[in-house]
Simulated assay, not measured.
Amino acid sequence: MTHDLTPRPLNPAPPAPDFAWPGGKKSAVFIGFDVDAETAWIGNTPANVNRMVTTSHGGYDARVGIAKILDLMADLSLKGTFFIPGWTAEAHPAACEAIVAAGHEIGHHGYLHKLPDRDRLDEAYDEIDRGLAALKARLGVVPVGYRAPSGENFPELLAHLTARGLRYSSSFRDDIRPYRHLLADGRPGPVEIPVNYAFDDWNFGMTARTSPRSIFGRDMILPLWRDEFAATHDWGGVTTMVLHPQVSGRPMRWHILRDFLTEVAAREDVWIATGAEITAHYEACEAAR
């Protein structure tokens, strides 16, 4: 594949439109969990399937992390969106069924958590289609939202998501408010609920035995989350969280997340919503315009 380096905006989507959040709220918070389980360790590195200690990081999801996150969300009476790879739904059906039973939204997160690659279109499309099939067969769910495994996307994949009925994506990092993608042929694509990278717990709470990267504790994370949320709230944006049960389901990090969400939930000027709810609101405002 040749690479077109012509100077241009690489995301052709128009700017995020102005619209009000429901009920006079000043900003929105989107609590999203990526239930990667072992796929985080084997999807892009298949040889890890024979490294049981390495994959045990992901095994924490079904053994401990998911249940603890569900307890936290129930204690705070909050609903979130759980992006589940198809492989995870097949490997850990009971843990994933508990998410559905608790009334949370289920989003699409690929099948084996493979990085979408524009040079391997058939593989990228298969990840979408196998993931959809697995979520339907194992959980009885047809998701409306998608978060890209390993956080990547490209024009053909956006078109494939649209063709498969996915109404929103939550992967891009180029705005603080939702906007609608523009496909290469000029048609409207999915709504984007952009991610705030500061709220990706993997960056601060996950490492591996072979990695020199440090992990960070409360004194680093909670002030960062508080300050970033306060500024996003002041600008009327959406605070999109990218959380992982194998990270934020760990004991100390569970308490950090609990304290942050407790503070946010106590406010009367913040709309805490699922991806589907935010998308439905965006679509209603779009239709009214």
Rank of each mutant, 00 (worst) to 15 (best):
L5E: 14
R8V: 13
P17C: 09
F19W: 06
W21C: 09
P22A: 12
P22E: 03
G23F: 03
G24D: 05
G24R: 08
G24E: 08
K26L: 04
D34S: 15
W41K: 11
G43H: 05
N44V: 07
A47D: 10
N48Y: 01
V49E: 08
R51A: 06
T54W: 04
G59L: 09
R63T: 10
G65R: 02
I66V: 07
D75N: 15
S77T: 13
G80P: 13
G80V: 08
G80I: 03
T81G: 10
I84C: 08
I84D: 03
G86N: 01
W87V: 00
H92G: 10
A94F: 02
A101Y: 02
H109A: 08
Y111T: 00
H113W: 09
H113F: 03
K114H: 11
E123S: 06
A124S: 14
E127A: 00
I128P: 00
A133E: 13
A134N: 04
A134C: 04
L135P: 00
K136N: 02
R138V: 00
R138N: 05
V142G: 11
P143L: 00
G145P: 09
F154A: 06
H160R: 11
Y168V: 01
D175K: 12
R177P: 03
V195S: 10
F199N: 04
D200G: 02
W202L: 12
G205N: 06
R209G: 05
S211D: 14
F216G: 07
F216R: 04
G217T: 04
D219M: 07
W225L: 02
D227Q: 10
A231G: 07
T232M: 12
G236P: 00
V238I: 06
M241A: 01
H244W: 02
R253A: 10
L261T: 01
T262P: 03
V264W: 00
V264T: 11
D269N: 14
W271V: 15
A287H: 13
